[in-house]
């Protein structure tokens, strides 16, 4: 069976800017595959190339074995695309929107009606579907957009930042819905700069930075590859700097503590990277007790995807995000997204 999506050495430039440098990834049927990276990393451009909205400069893209470059129309039939910006016609009702969508994908009349009933039911849009979309809240708009993307029964659903700007309740609805898709026969590719989102949903992840894939695997594999555990330690609720430095010196002396950072932003708490071991917390507590230092709070966790990103790029996703915001050119991006 051909992979649901196969992208090999994709490259895409806009004038002087290289949006995608070299992206290769393979998504198996029935997977939820996550593209994780800060804004401006090339996620959206990759998806636009995949959905035939942009012509790649180099590389191969296949959807279920069909080349999106040589046979774009055949590939479009297999794809559903849910863009980051929800573009609805506010004068139409939700049902009229979906009917338009059904005709654009050439569903026969009766099948179109049946499918609309199914997706409306699946996304709980029953109360809204016959109202004009101009009256919808952000969450309902997104749900209608998801319904439209799924209407023709695509083999692959491509979602760009599906929960950006949504309230917590709507985000939960979208997540629950996305988790159900593989059992309905749809493969999912989701781009997000939210760690939790990718961690919670994706079977496998590709981390993208500056137009390149810098790590790929299941979230567990990626975390294991970084290795060790993370321990957050608070000596007091607000620890004096000297005391924190003292504790840091004591703990770095332990052979299994790899790294210790005093986090000034959080009341001088200590962030430790340690080798995975079950007695880590007990040993730390014993060491501190020996120096007459109290423990206000201590927690041990596995590395997060953020640690994976940090290990690969030398900065956290949040820092990359902030740096990217400074580099962005909204006018240029608007132009790229316009056809």
């Amino acid at each position: 069976m051909a992979p649901a999506i196969s992208i090999r050495n994709l490259q895409k430039r806009y004038g002087q800017t290289t949006a995608v440098e070299d992206v290769s990834l393979q998504v198996e049927p029935g997977e939820i595959f996550g593209l994780l990276g800060p804004n401006g990393a090339g996620k959206t451009t990759t998806m636009r190339c995949l959905c035939t909205l942009a012509q790649p400069d180099q590389g191969e893209i296949e959807v279920a074995g069909i080349s999106a470059i040589a046979q774009p129309r055949a590939a479009r039939k297999l794809l559903g695309y849910v863009a980051q910006e929800v573009a609805l016609d506010k004068v139409l009702t939700g049902r009229e929107m979906l009917q338009l969508q059904a005709d654009l994908y050439h569903l026969p009349k009766q099948k179109g009606r049946d499918r609309i009933e199914s997706v409306v039911d699946l996304l709980g849009l029953g109360d809204w579907i016959d109202r004009k979309t101009g009256t919808y809240s952000g969450g309902i708009r997104k749900r209608l957009d998801l319904a439209a993307g799924l209407l023709h029964g695509p083999a692959v659903l491509v979602l760009d930042e599906p929960t950006v700007g949504l309230d917590i309740e709507s985000r939960r609805v979208v997540w629950d819905f996305l988790r159900r898709l593989p059992s309905l026969g749809t493969t999912v590719l989701i781009a997000s700069h939210y760690l939790e989102e990718v961690d919670a949903l994706a079977d496998r992840v590709a981390i993208i930075d500056r137009g390149r894939v810098i790590a790929q695997g299941t979230p567990n594999e990626l975390k294991d590859r970084v290795g060790g555990d993370r321990i957050t330690l608070r000596i007091r609720e607000f620890t004096p700097e000297a005391e924190a430095a003292h504790a840091k010196a004591l703990l770095t002396a332990l052979p299994w503590v790899r790294e210790a950072i005093v986090n000034g932003a959080q009341g001088n708490s200590l962030n430790l990277v340690v080798e995975s071991r079950s007695d880590a917390i007990a040993s730390i507590q014993a060491t501190l007790a020996g120096a007459d230092l109290p423990v206000f709070g201590i927690a041990q966790a596995r590395p997060s995807l953020d640690d994976v990103y940090l290990a690969a790029t030398g900065q956290t996703l949040l820092d990359a995000e902030l740096a990217a915001v400074g580099r962005r050119d909204p006018k240029l991006e608007r132009k790229q997204n316009m056809r």
Partner: peptide, 11 residues
């Protein structure tokens, strides 16, 4: 962005 909706469809 509504045009994108038309352009990703297999017209």
């Amino acid at each position: 962005g509504f045009l994108n909706r038309l352009l990703v469809a297999p017209l």
